[in-house]
């Protein structure tokens, strides 16, 4: 689904900040609504380019759809000048937005089978709309597992969603932390270690993985080890994106442009470069 913005994908449209939720530390979730008109449709896994006036633009994955209000939801961590500006907005502020761009998660291919979502840290954000999609069409899928690794119990992204996702055992959501505290009753350790403990039929499973590249490499190894075919594993890649439309060349990952051919990529198609440094 390609955006239409006066026929010029370079030009952002004005969106208003409708809601700001502080998740933890340097991470905020923004609800953005278009000023006039409706937002374009999107597929879970796609991203938008968000623009802070006069500061710059950053590629941010779409993490939700603002239930019936016609907006986008984005989760942002302050890491640079642009994300700092975006994470510092207040309700009512205007930001620029162009998108959505890129390829999303294979949710229709996954129908009639099991799904394993593996997320690390902010990698949960682009998987969140996929999880919501699965819940809305729950009968189309069999067992659904979410394995989420995060730093510690204080960096639980979308904590309030987990209860809803788990309700009625619709999603078997397991959280593991790298560092636990005395109050933590859940799992401790790296998220790939949860894969062998999960219940799914490896030959009838679609796995969707998003997180830091190192974590994804380990997670893919665990999934392969569990018998999931390479073509049933999808990863969401990250590279430097400036234009988002395949023209600036910066997000190249081998022969692919992440903005156009990704960010969601089928593992077997990138397997030969997945472990090569500095590609």
């Amino acid at each position: 689904m390609m955006p239409t913005m006066d026929g010029d994908a370079w030009r952002p449209s004005v969106y208003r900040v409708a809601r700001v939720v502080r998740e933890f530390e340097e991470v905020v979730t923004l609800t953005l609504r278009p000023e006039g008109g409706n937002r374009p449709a999107f597929m879970p896994g796609q991203f938008n380019m968000l623009y802070a006036f006069g500061v710059g633009e950053a590629a941010i994955s779409i993490c939700g759809e603002d239930e019936g209000q016609g907006g986008f939801v984005h989760t942002i961590r302050r890491v640079g000048a642009v994300s700092h500006a975006l994470a510092s907005v207040s309700e009512g502020d205007a930001v620029g937005l162009r998108g959505p761009f890129g390829k999303g998660w294979p949710l229709s291919e996954a129908e009639r089978g099991d799904i394993v979502f593996v997320a690390g840290g902010l990698g949960l954000a682009p998987l969140r709309p996929a999880i919501e999609h699965v819940l809305q069409h729950r009968s189309h899928y069999r067992r659904v597992t979410l394995l989420f690794g995060t730093r510690n119990p204080h960096t639980m992204l979308f904590e309030s969603d987990f209860g809803r996702w788990r309700r009625g055992a619709e999603v078997d959501a397991v959280v593991t932390v790298d560092q636990a505290d005395a109050a933590w009753r859940g799992s401790v350790g790296a998220v790939p270690a949860l894969v062998p403990r999960a219940t799914f039929d490896p030959k009838e499973t679609m796995a969707m993985v998003c997180g830091p590249e190192v974590m994804m490499r380990f997670a893919v190894a665990s999934l392969r080890d569990a018998g999931v075919p390479a073509e049933s594993i999808h990863v969401s890649m990250e590279r430097n994106m400036k234009c988002a439309i395949g023209l600036c060349g910066r997000c190249q990952y081998g022969q692919d442009f992440i903005c156009r051919d990704g960010p969601v990529m089928r593992y077997d198609r990138v397997a030969s470069r997945f472990s090569i440094r500095e590609i």
Binding site: E26, R77, R78, V79, G120, G121, L122, G149, T150, R151, T155, D178, G189, A190, P192, A193, G211, P212, V214, M215, F218, D225
Partner: peptide
């Protein structure tokens, strides 16, 4: 060995962000 690998991954502290 797999547990050793997972422990190393856990050591990397991947989710904290660059700061």
């Amino acid at each position: 060995v797999k547990r050793l690998h997972a422990t190393r991954l856990q050591m990397f502290d991947l989710y904290g962000g660059p700061t």
